[in-house]
Design a binder for these strands. Structure first.
Length: 604
DNA sequence: TTTAGGG
DNA sequence: CCCTAAA
């Protein structure tokens, strides 16, 4: 029997995703009965009709059922998808948003201190706790790090995913609209740690939004990003949010804020080889960022050439990370031989964007890595291959090295760090199958279940991608000491976390902040935090007060810290009496004092 | 080990 | 970031 799945509509029909889902639901049988399963691309015409795609868009899959056995069998109900979610992370992410809101809107500053404290004491508010207890635990559970497809989340009532009361009253926003291109560039750099030359405002805003979404784990919360603002999901219709899909990126961080959920980890142990092969399917059906991004991109508009290029930089990195993870995981089984070669496998025309997947063959097991058609990337990473050969006997080692190599390419961790999760296993299509024929509400529920289940995957999914000892290459100095070779640029979200941490625990409690707020950033030491804070203080007091007629932040080359954040820094400094005496005098008295008061009562 | 501060 | 004194 064949199962047809609507993969993508065309651009124009993109907004009809709900329609697509319904239609494809009727087309699909929830359960695959036999092999092979055929994924068929369908288009949706303006009126919502399904139109079969051309034959060359038809991708035949050897055996999807392998996935059911190998990928999902760990879960009690094969039809259940497990989402990986972050509690802690989302919490702080939300807090950050909240703060940002406060920053940009001083009149909204009343951040209920009780609530804040409450959140501290009940350290880990659970997302859909009632659901999270289920299958996984009983079944011996493996984290299936699945990304619920955008559509699913978008289609239902997104707010139902949110069960965190703390943020229920938020209508926060980070308004990227107000930023100039230049500012967007700065923000971009701050967010991703790398420069961009893209002039396209929309692109920048979208990209930044996504970056923030990922890094702050906004995704796991009730926020979506729409019209370049972070908006509470509940306020939205979900399906029509232009940028909504980004916010739905599933969280990839567990409660401890650690990167989590190596899908491969267990799967590969159990059925190593076939699993590996199966990733070809996975990539085709695409549950990774790559795929999601495609959709998201299309939702906005036809991607520009430049967009694709920029995207490919990030994505190819992510791909490499995935590959890396694969290597790591399967390395445990010693499956990977040092030899590896790469060849182009197939071009999949997916709704307007041509994706070239390449088959990275590691030890005979084909791992298909999606990458954007970009000549520059077609060549395998030199370092990667070299490193693979470097230590044939220990893939773990090699993988670690590879990671370093990847870092060497200048990609800041922030957009990848928390994304360093293998999410290939459970594909949107899988989820698609699962939700086929299920009423919207139930779908929503299922998503929630999945999300909840994700909470329980923490322990199993503990993926120490962020090698506990820093990935930063250390280099011996002439003086005999060693020092880190690479400064990891502080990303915006890190700064936000830091500020948040300081506001919670107070400046000086660096180890606390480190432990609680930067648990997932193993490369940031408490000293780093302290140093950064010192810099922030300096910066905040340097530029805010006089409000130099000029745009205060010039092209310093240093990371531009958004003014609101600096304001917050200064505010915190004021109320913690960290202010340089000569500067303490003016302006801030009123509101800051009030805040101080609130905070105090809050703590008492 | 953690903080604080200078380099 | 690094180094180190001091706690």
């Amino acid at each position: 029997m064949e199962t047809e799945v609507g993969v993508e509509g065309n651009d124009e029909a993109k907004h009809k995703e709900c329609g697509i889902r319904k239609s494809s639901s009727s087309l699909s049988s929830p359960k695959q009965i036999s092999d092979p399963v055929v994924y068929k691309l369908v288009r949706v015409e303006g009126d919502g009709r399904l139109v079969p795609a051309t034959d060359d868009e038809l991708v035949e899959v050897e055996s999807l059922r392998i996935d059911d056995r190998c990928g999902m069998h760990v879960v009690a109900d094969p039809g259940q998808t497990v989402g990986c979610i972050s509690n802690e992370g989302s919490s702080s992410g939300m807090a950050q948003l909240k703060r940002l809101e406060g920053w940009s809107q001083p009149e909204n500053k009343k951040v209920d201190p009780d609530k804040l404290n409450g959140r501290l004491e009940e350290p880990v508010p659970l997302l859909a706790p009632s659901l999270s207890e289920s299958h996984l635990n009983q079944s011996g559970s493996v984290g299936e790090c699945s990304h619920p497809p955008d559509e699913l989340v978008a289609g239902g009532s997104p707010s139902s995913v949110t069960t965190k009361p703390d943020f229920s009253r938020l209508k926060g926003e980070i308004c990227l609209d107000n930023l100039s291109i230049k500012e967007l560039h700065e923000t971009f750099k701050a967010t991703f740690g790398r420069e961009t030359t893209v002039k396209d405002k929309q692109w920048l805003k979208r990209r930044i939004s996504m970056g923030l979404t990922n890094s702050c784990d906004v995704s796991t919360t009730s926020f979506i990003i729409k019209d370049n603002k972070f908006v509470k999901k509940g306020n939205e219709e979900g399906c029509n949010g232009m940028y909504g899909s980004f916010a739905k990126d599933p969280p990839i961080v567990n409660q401890k804020g650690l990167p989590t959920c190596h899908v491969g980890q267990l799967d590969y142990h159990k059925v190593p080889e076939r699993r590996l092969e199966n990733h070809n399917l996975d990539d085709n059906s695409g549950s990774d960022d790559h795929q999601k991004e495609q959709r998201a991109a299309k939702r906005v508009r036809k991607p520009t050439k430049r967009y694709i290029e920029e995207l490919s930089e990030v994505e190819s990195k992510e791909s490499n990370e995935r590959l890396l993870n694969l290597a790591k995981d399967s390395g445990h089984d010693g499956l990977i031989s040092p030899k590896s070669h790469v060849r182009l496998v197939r071009n999949v025309s997916s709704g307007g964007r041509t994706v070239i997947t390449r088959l990275d063959s590691l030890g005979g097991s084909g791992i298909q890595v999606p990458c954007v058609s970009r000549v520059r990337r077609s060549r395998p990473r030199k370092n990667f291959m070299a490193l693979l050969k470097f230590n044939p006997s220990s893939m773990g080692m090699a993988a670690a090295l590879v990671e370093k190599a990847l870092d060497d390419h200048g990609f800041p961790p922030d957009d990848g760090n928390e994304n360093r999760v293998l999410k290939a296993s459970s594909t949107p299509e899988h989820v698609h199958h699962q939700f086929v024929g299920v009423p919207e509400k139930d779908k929503q529920f299922s998503v929630m279940s999945a999300v909840g289940l994700g909470n329980n995957t923490d322990l199993k999914c503990m993926n120490s991608n962020e090698d506990s000892d820093d990935n930063a290459v250390t280099v011996p100095t002439s003086k005999g000491g060693i020092r880190r070779k690479h400064h990891r640029a502080w990303t915006l979200s890190e700064v936000m976390k830091l500020v948040e941490g300081v506001s919670r625990y107070g400046a000086g409690r660096w180890s606390e902040i480190k432990r609680l707020a930067f648990a997932s950033y193993s490369y940031r030491t408490s000293v780093d935090l302290k140093d950064k804070w010192r810099n922030l203080l300096k910066a905040s007091f340097a530029q805010t007060p006089p409000d130099t007629g000029m745009n205060s932040r010039k092209n310093t080359g240093a990371m531009p810290i958004p003014t609101p954040i600096l304001l917050k820094v200064r505010e915190l400094a004021e109320m913690q009496a960290q202010v340089p005496p000569n500067l303490s005098s003016t302006k801030v008295a009123g509101s800051a004092r009030k805040i101080v008061h609130e905070k105090q009562t809050g703590f008492l």
